[in-house]
Nucleic acid binder design. Structure first.
Lengths: 251, 251
DNA sequence: ATCCATTTGTCCGTATGTATC
DNA sequence: AGATACATACGGACAAATGGA
């Protein structure tokens, strides 16, 4: 941050078209991108930055919040603000297997069943699974971990009665693929994935161990068995600061 | 918003574990998701919401900012805050042609060349294009429009001297595919795409006609010609509020 | 075309809570 | 225990854009 210090004393005045906090955010980001700061380096304190840029501490906070949203920096109360770390690549394709992906990347994969209940299929779910609206479906929520850190929060809908035994099998096996196999699905593949991005809700941020106001990538998709029959409509949430989705190649 | 009004008078007190602004954001979002409000409907004013939830106007503003980041709501100064609109699906695959996608969706496509200059290849670009670091490459920036509204902001790197005539061809043709054809590329395909999400920088927000602090989807990828030779390393930015990326099927 | 009330946008200052060191 | 540092919320002031009178 030393480079920007001297030059910015006069340049951050109010009313210059672009908001002051935005210019400060861009300045800090540029400093990081320039390679002046490495992963994990501690930024100056908010008070210091405020003095440096000649603004109120809240104006600096707004800039830091923008950078923290996508993981460029990470703030820890009582400790400080630090330069964020790189994202784990996460392949998306016809055959996406969480455990396989993570172990291939050198991480320890894990899945934790948060909840399983029978609900009536909404219009969207019914259309995807090619069943009637209102028909009973199994809603499964699970959290996926990499090295103990939650990376994804998934909500799946599976048709009943075919997958009535799925939750128990998942609990016993600890992973989705073998649990599906226990329900008679030899193999399955992803037909379509839709990717969007938004901010995490309060509950989502809590389960993903994210601070508030963090960006999540939302991937919704449909899995079909080897006969082409829809078996699972999924919505997976990824912390944008930890994950990067990879599409293509021979996946 | 009428449903939440009566029940929330007492429930938004400070110090309840989750931040007040976050609970307000979730409450408003739930109202919208419940279908009580349609696209384009006007929300109550910030002052009204503040009074309703029994908090300061700034606390409401923080909640609305979170909802505005991903397009759930849209605020206009002097006018008010409105429920946002749906996203346009954007297929990503081996053969992604912007014009074709947009016209198929019933929109009028357009591309505007923002800038073209010769730069030295960075490490990342050089690796992707399989050339030497520091070798001259053509950097092309272009804005893509759908119905006059900017939807994507792309930065491409093309090897030189092969594509020296690309900018002129693009200006003449108005679209990428024919411009590449003018450079001798009969056909090309996408080898890999990496998708991440972050907040737009000040400059990006300006060119995309986005308010500050909006989420963008970033898709970086490599295009290769029919001989498998890398011809274009691209980074495309999409406004998350306007676009939803679609992967898969027979694309 | 002008004025004016309304409404959102930006920034400052202050107070307090809470986690870390 | 105390100092430090980030998190949340309040209040005030003014700017800028809108829209109706």
């Amino acid at each position: 941050m030393t480079g920007a210090t001297e030059t910015t004393a006069e340049s951050f005045e109010r009313g210059g078209g672009i908001a002051v906090w935005r210019r400060i955010a861009d300045a800090i980001e540029a400093e990081i991108a320039a390679g002046n700061m490495a992963q994990g380096d501690k930024l100056p304190t908010e008070a210091t930055l405020a003095q440096r840029f000649g603004v109120n501490r809240h104006t600096v906070r707004r800039a830091l919040a923008a950078l923290a949203a996508d993981g460029a920096v990470e703030s820890t109360r009582g400790s400080g603000t630090f330069v964020g770390s790189a994202r784990i690549p996460y392949p998306i394709g016809p055959s996406t297997r969480f455990s396989a992906i993570m172990t291939a990347e050198g991480h320890v994969a894990g899945a934790e069943l948060i909840g399983a209940e029978t609900v009536a299929a909404s219009r969207v779910v019914a259309e995807a699974l090619e069943i009637e609206e209102g028909a009973p479906v199994l809603q499964v929520k699970l959290k996926r971990l990499s090295d103990g850190m939650p990376v994804s929060l998934g909500t799946s809908f599976l048709p009943l009665p075919r997958f009535a035994g799925f939750p128990e099998a998942l609990r016993a096996q600890g992973a989705v693929t073998p649990a599906l196999k226990a329900c008679g699905v030899q193999d399955y593949s992803r037909r379509e994935t839709r990717i969007s991005a938004r901010l995490a809700t309060g509950a989502e941020a809590a389960t993903l161990q994210l601070e508030a106001e963090r960006i999540v990538l939302m991937a919704t998709g449909l899995n079909v068995d080897d006969a082409g029959v829809p078996i699972q409509f999924t919505e997976a949430l990824f912390a944008a600061s930890r994950i990067e989705l990879v599409v293509g190649s021979g996946l």
